[in-house]
Computed example of a mutant assay.
Amino acid sequence: MERMALVSDVHGNLTAYEAVLDDIERRGIERVLNLGDYVGKGPRGREVVELSQQRCEVNLLGNWDDFLPDPERTIDDEALRFWLAQLGPGQGEWLRSLPFCHDFWLSGRRVRLFHASEQSVHRRVRYVRSQAEFESLFANTEATGDGPAPDLIGYADTHDPMYEVQLEGRAVFNTGSVGNCMGDPTPMYCILEGELGSEEVAPWSVAYVRVPYDVEAELAVAREMEMPQYDMYELELVQGIYRGHIDAWRAGEPLTGYHER
């Protein structure tokens, strides 16, 4: 049985990432796969990219990794300029060149990992979604390429962990987020276990791990670096409330679940 750790959506939160990688190492897991969104929101995208290059066997493209360093985009937002400036030489090109998805066999299941959906890193599939959206996740597209159709999908993007299985044994799971998980902001990653590379049916599992970390140390770095949108970052890391709800939260309005937006 092989174990692999799936991490995603670190978003420049180096303190949380180091805590998660330390936990993975303590468990003796050597394979680490990153499902994207290394940069943006948090202050230390450069260090997160460097650590991912060193520690991750597979690195996939996320939506932030695609649009933030796009040389054809004009960036007129202070926060975006800050996050872009944090990248080291060549890191923007490395991010945009990352593969879209990663396919492999595990205990007789064809697994496909990607960041957001089968179509694009910019198309989001929420926990609350249509049946058509669920079924489309298993399709081969121009982005995924051809090959055996998957029956186990792992993705990220929404910062909202979930697991769902339907008829024919097709299952979907979301890894949650290392850098700013919603609801419970404690960093989260997945452990996928099974007979790696085997087309023979065998036991397999997916487990979720929460890793406490020094959130105040991370926020202190953001303040020291005078990172734009600090209040929004603090709201996500401390309260687990999406930054788009900051005005409603300040006004004391009741908030619906993040997955519904």
Rank of each mutant, 00 (worst) to 15 (best):
D65R: 08
L106A: 11
V111E: 04
R81N: 12
R112C: 08
G42H: 15
L87F: 03
E78Y: 13
A79Q: 12
S130Q: 07
V49Y: 00
R96H: 02
V125I: 15
R46M: 09
R124D: 14
R44P: 01
A85G: 01
G92R: 14
G92F: 10
L95D: 02
P99Y: 01
G92M: 12
H115L: 13
W64I: 04
E135F: 10
V49M: 05
V111Y: 14
V58A: 00
F67K: 05
C101D: 04
E135I: 06
E135D: 14
A132W: 00
V111G: 13
S107L: 04
Q54D: 14
R46Q: 15
F82E: 08
R110I: 07
E93S: 15
V121M: 12
P99I: 05
D103Y: 08
A139Q: 15
E72C: 11
D77K: 05
L106C: 10
S136A: 15
L51E: 06
L80D: 11
L87S: 05
W105Q: 04
R109Q: 14
S130L: 12
R46N: 15
R55T: 00
R46W: 06
P69A: 01
V49F: 06
S130M: 02
H115R: 06
P89H: 14
G108N: 01
G90N: 09
L113Q: 14
E72Q: 13
F104R: 00
V48S: 01
R73L: 12
E135M: 02
A132K: 13
N140M: 14
W105G: 00
R46T: 13
W94L: 04
V121L: 09
V121E: 09
V48W: 04
W64Q: 03
L61Q: 05
S107I: 02
I75H: 08
R96D: 02
D66L: 06
T74W: 01
S107K: 13
N59M: 15
W94P: 06
C101K: 03
W83N: 12
E57I: 03
P43W: 03
S107C: 03
H122F: 08
A79L: 11
D76I: 10
L95Y: 04
F114T: 12
V128G: 08
F67C: 10
A132D: 07
F67D: 06
F104V: 00
S130G: 11
E72M: 07
A79G: 12
L60F: 02
G92S: 09
W94Y: 07
E47K: 07
S52P: 01
F100V: 00
F138T: 06
L84V: 04
D77A: 10
D70R: 04
H122T: 11
N59Y: 01
E118K: 07
A116M: 12
Q53M: 02
R55K: 09
F104C: 04
A85W: 13
A139R: 11
W94I: 04
V49I: 14
E133V: 10
W105C: 07
Q86M: 00
L137I: 03
W64R: 03
E93T: 11
R112L: 05
Q53F: 01
R109Y: 12
R73M: 03
P69Q: 02
E72R: 09
